[in-house]
């Protein structure tokens, strides 16, 4: 499955909806989109991973890179994810301690 990327605004927050598989082939497109959004001044981004079927360490690297970039502008990159198969990758790598992970888009956009 290919990678799908869609950007919406919800309650004034930039939301990047990701669908499909994030791996060594598709992750560069996700990185480009996050870099573009940061370049446009979107320093708080919620990345919705609910439609992601697969995520490997390359995808994790892109999300961590995005988090670093946004935090350097006093922003943040938050995640929406309830899928066990995706959450497990964050848990194994210890990245649940690094990212704010929400169980719904509403919860993410309404957080401080």
């Amino acid at each position: 499955m290919d990678l799908g990327l869609e950007v919406i605004e919800k309650n004034g927050v930039t939301v990047l909806i990701v669908r499909g598989e994030v791996d060594v082939y598709t992750a560069p497109r996700l990185r480009e989109r996050i870099v573009e959004l940061a370049g446009e001044g979107h320093y708080r981004i919620v990345v919705d991973l609910e439609g992601v079927d697969f995520l490997d360490s390359t995808g994790l690297g892109v999300l961590v890179g995005g988090l670093k970039r946004l935090r350097s502008h006093d922003g943040d990159l938050q995640l929406v994810c309830t899928q066990h198969r995706i959450l497990k990758v964050f848990e194994i790598t210890g990245l649940t301690k690094v990212f704010s992970i929400f169980d719904s888009l509403d919860a993410a956009v309404s957080s401080e």
Binding site: S57, T58, L60, G61, V64, L67, K68, I92, T93, G94, L95, K97, V98
Partner: peptide
């Protein structure tokens, strides 16, 4: 080594 406590430690490779 696996497991990170901050993103500064993270090296995907």
């Amino acid at each position: 080594k696996i497991g990170v406590s901050s993103f500064e430690e993270f090296r995907p490779a």
